[in-house]
Design a protein around this nucleic acid. Structure first.
Lengths: 229, 229, 229, 229
DNA sequence: GATGAATGAGGGTTCATTCAT
DNA sequence: AATGAATGAACCCTCATTCAT
């Protein structure tokens, strides 16, 4: 992991934008700018004000544009950065080789909780980016990359699933589809009802309540779809 | 149903805003303003321009503000109007007294298709309103009302469901929860992948493909959750 | 001359820009905006500040852009306006049917003096527009129109000239070319040495000194090129 | 001519600016900065960007301001430098002791062609400096110096002219004035119609066409003003 | 000397909102 | 009721200039 940071730069730069100046900045200031930008963009691309960002990050207006050129490129960078964080801190950590897909779901949920605790704004920001109404803004392929990474992940988990666990008389492929939809629905419901921005202990508690609820659902589904032992 | 129109006014006015002037407008002009506003707000609250709205509706700038006071109240009205349309054209038409919840789901899907065909922008607009990043804008409780109407609807459907149809060894309440999540997830997935704005025959065909897919899922679930006949 | 004003609108609008809103403005405010703009653009397109223009014209920033859309279109309008003024107040007034081209030159010089006295900024502004370094700005063909109007004028004057006045042994066509160049050079020299912005009596005096000098040159040239009577 | 370079420094420094640091720079880098600046200032003082200059010259932003202090002083230096080049490469080379002023004009035209071929940007830059709309910028007296050098030159040429060549009945002083104006007008017309920036063979050809045209005019004028041989 | 990150006033432009008519 | 000219604060962005290294 020596070149951890460098490899991140490469990935973020890969597809076009030139964020070199910014990426070689000292970490503290870079962090301030990233946090300020993510926070401001939570309210939508159009409504976000670069004035607010520079005020929050305590830098001059000119500097922000020295690094990013335009508001749009700043947003583009933030999306790439968030996607890259998701990959390193979530996607890459998942063990896809488990026989019980409910175990897989449980594990990913724990990792997702850890991610949200560690980088709360990253997750909220990406959620916002997905629904960003200003479609011209989503140009950069980073979001699509994340979606396909996620799709691959799901496919791999399902590929490693032990289908013999499923109850006789149930088509495992159909069942898996349903299971996928169920947890997608669950995640959406949770995102919709969660007031973002909670941090610290409160967030942790919220999350653990959610995980308890999830555990029950998983158990129920095991009962529905799996053979009785 | 003589007072159809008046009752609508009452509901829309109920919670605060004073849209009396607008609601007593002649229907043709009112329709022009509503359509223009919905269309423009599809691109997001902030990005929507009152200039575009008045141009599309062929009214003067002053008149729009004469009716609604501020852009925010205009948006608020549009949300209420769309919610009210959903209620009248969708929620109220659902027959909750069916024994098989998969039949209920099927029926609601057909009604939803009809709604989308009849008022395409209403549905797209509401979808946008849900994810509107500008949380200060969602103040009006209309969206919450719609959510609770929807929750009540689901509760009623489930209350009328014949639990004896469920397979032994499955907790029907847990199963119902899962079923709800599954179709929520399915709906979300479809919304995400549907390019809005399609109208006419194409839209109809898209919808029918979707319904066919849904039918398969329903059948699979019946196999999973219900007793073999 | 009843439709004097309307025909002006048509000409200025003809080639593209939509300046209708501005042209139907009451004359007093329109004049303020035109004067302020011309004055500010004297220092060059790039250096001119719309802030200064609106301050000088005593209107709001928004109103200027309500009328003209962009700074570039404002400049374009001013060029058209100045060209149109030149046409109406100078080109159209010249009597091209004179036998002695030195009389023609004298007459045009008198008319030019009157123009400069009446619209001092118009002339200075156009001079600046000719040399405007920012070539992308000169897009509108108005300046070219003026040049070709001027060229036509010169051609007509020369066409009506009585060539039999020229001394034997001089090619009248070559002589006419030289005469044209001489007065072009003279005009340029005068423009270069004149501090613009002078108004009132001083300007008048400057002009009359210039005319006296011109008269001498004309007499000399008559002696050079014409037969002795 | 050993102190060629030093004397140049003195002249450029004479009237105020302190360009010592820059003038003692190694020639290669100095050349890069001069060329980059001239090129950029061709588009006008205001539009020229110091960013472009340092990029083209491959030096840092700080260094440019280390040498020149402000953009305005940089421009001032460039004017002085261009004027000095004109003097050394044009004014000083002219032989004023010729009897036929048309020969003098011909000779200066040849020299001017050589200058333009050798330092194309110097000539274009000075032309631009003359018409620079931003009058505050022309403060430095260098341009005036050039003008007076030119005036002296013309005076000397005319002083050496053999007035007995002129036709009887023509006042030679008046004729000379006219001749001066004619070629001033001709030069201006040519500058206006020449698209600058042409280099190499094309420029050479353009020039030679121009010289041919000039020769004809000279012959005509000889016929007009001189005695028949 | 040499660098380029950093500054911030100023630039052109937008747009919800007001108001005289 | 109906108009649309008028407003001005806020927006994104530029760029000559400074300064710590």
């Amino acid at each position: 992991m020596i070149d951890n940071e460098n490899s991140e730069c490469e990935r973020i730069e890969a597809e076009g934008g030139d964020y070199h100046k910014f990426l070689t900045l000292d970490e503290e200031k870079r962090g301030r700018i990233i946090n300020a930008s993510m926070k401001e963009f939570l309210s939508g691309y159009k409504k976000a004000s670069t004035d607010n960002i520079v005020r929050e990050a305590a830098i001059s207006k000119g500097l922000l544009f020295h690094y990013f050129g335009t508001k749009e490129k700043l947003y583009d960078f933030m999306v790439r950065y968030a996607v890259e964080t998701m990959r390193k801190e979530y996607i890459d950590l998942i063990n896809v080789r488990q026989r019980d897909i409910f175990d897989s779901i449980w594990q990913t949920s724990l990792l997702k909780r850890d991610l949200c605790m560690k980088f709360p704004s990253v997750f909220d920001f990406l959620t916002g980016a997905y629904v960003e109404a200003d479609h011209e803004i989503n140009a950069g392929g980073a979001l699509k990359d994340l979606q396909s990474m996620h799709a691959n992940l799901v496919a791999e988990i399902f590929a490693h699933a032990d289908l013999s666990l499923f109850r006789d008389g149930i088509d495992p492929k159909a069942a898996i589809k349903i299971i996928g939809l169920t947890f997608a629905g669950y995640a959406n419901a949770k995102i919709a009802e969660t007031p973002s921005g909670k941090t610290g202990e409160t967030a942790r508690e919220n999350y653990d309540i959610y995980l308890e609820e999830l555990k029950e659902i998983l158990d129920t589904m095991r009962a529905c779809f799996y053979k009785q032992q």
